[in-house]
Design a protein around this nucleic acid. Sequence first.
DNA 1: CGTGTTTTTGACTTCAGTCAATTAAAGTGG
DNA 2: CCACTTTAATTGACTGAAGTCAAAAACACG
Lengths: 254, 254
Amino acid sequence: MRSPSHPLAPLLWRLSLHGEHSAADEEAVLALPTHVRNLERGQYVVQEGEKPTHSCVIVAGFAIRHKTGEDGARQIVSINMAGGMIDLQNSLLSIADHNVESLSRMKAAVIPREAIIELAFNRPAVGKALWLETLIEGSIAREWIMNIGRRHAPQRLAHFFCEFAYRLHAVGAGSACSYELPMTQAQLADAVGLTGVHVNRVLKALGEAGLVKSFRRSVVIRNLLALAAYGDFRPMYLHLPSHALPAPWDAGRN
Amino acid sequence: MRSPSHPLAPLLWRLSLHGEHSAADEEAVLALPTHVRNLERGQYVVQEGEKPTHSCVIVAGFAIRHKTGEDGARQIVSINMAGGMIDLQNSLLSIADHNVESLSRMKAAVIPREAIIELAFNRPAVGKALWLETLIEGSIAREWIMNIGRRHAPQRLAHFFCEFAYRLHAVGAGSACSYELPMTQAQLADAVGLTGVHVNRVLKALGEAGLVKSFRRSVVIRNLLALAAYGDFRPMYLHLPSHALPAPWDAGRN
DNA sequence: CGTGTTTTTGACTTCAGTCAATTAAAGTGG
DNA sequence: CCACTTTAATTGACTGAAGTCAAAAACACG
């Protein structure tokens, strides 16, 4: 990798998951006009109904996308981590259909809408990788529908923890069996379609069963395969190349 | 429109929702190598784990995408109608992460994977429209997450009926306030994350409340706006151009 | 230290699921 | 066109998972 310190390095890293790119393509990506923006926890990047003029790439930290019902009910519809593009969809669709909010302190590389679109169409390989990224987001969304629609609270949470583990690992932002999850129980509840109170109880039960310990904002998975089996988690839908999958036998070690 | 009887005409129609295309682009679309396949109700177009070599466009009829849990629980994750591309995602992602099944008797135009990809990258306007299509599918998936995760059974169903009404209308495949919905109550349940028995009871209540009558496989909406308000349905997420929205005042008639 | 968030717990409610049986519809083949 | 079979819809009685309300305890942070 050319410039590990370049703000767009995480994007390159991410795109490389879908195959190697030529040096020219990599340079074109790094040459995107951009500036870094630092966000505190809980700041909005885009709000529903806005017409964003910029997209951004997460350099470090996490963002959540969420929707709100008229009665105030909130549902988190996806979580983004390093290398993830925020608002590629909203940029192309011209009007944002959901909110994007920083989950933790976050660093984002802001890129003008047109520059991204131009890149995508001038460099087919990059365009294809970006398209793949949006397709994978779609795949994850479908799995969330399955998770929320058809699994009980304990397996829902187990599945969620597994997904997070695998994605973190793939993105090189943490270990698969022990990681920081900067979410409150209430936010966790909004992600899996439960209430905060119930998440609390289920978390306690999962801990007592020895499947996941979640203390404060950190998650420790004793046995990733066991948790995956329990939560009916099959990572295929993440479309990760095999070299980006965590080695499950590492899960036993601490 | 050039060839209303061409099997790919519905695709053109759909793409035109995202802006006009040049005559050359339209011809390139219609020139795609294709053959028509007729499917009975309940036939699989793709199965989870397969590596599809072809994509297809729905010419007439409906398809559902669904996932299955290890315990046999089934969740429908999306519904596709005329002009919809099946397995654009699976083609690009190379391995299918869900099943696609015909909901009713269905006519599909089968296109080789490479031909579609080539078209997308040689004709940027078409590529962009296809990309937009996949982004809109993503947006719909996010709304489904919201619907299943945060709304009670009656509003979930109300929302579902509204979405179907709007999408059917946009695609020119039916009227917004009275349409054929070729789904059993059990399938409806699989789509909204409930059980068949409960769907049956809720449907009865919605009928008695005068919001939607669903008899056999047909749905009649007395007052679309009232149903939308009840189901917290706000069509923005469908990203339909205003000319493709149903005129709500039509809903009162009939 | 004190204030505001988050987590935890208990008691109670309710929405939705389960099981099981009945009725109604839709095919099917003679 | 009618018995026969299959599939779908409907209903009742009961169970159970998750939600609600409210208060207390534990943290986090200035």
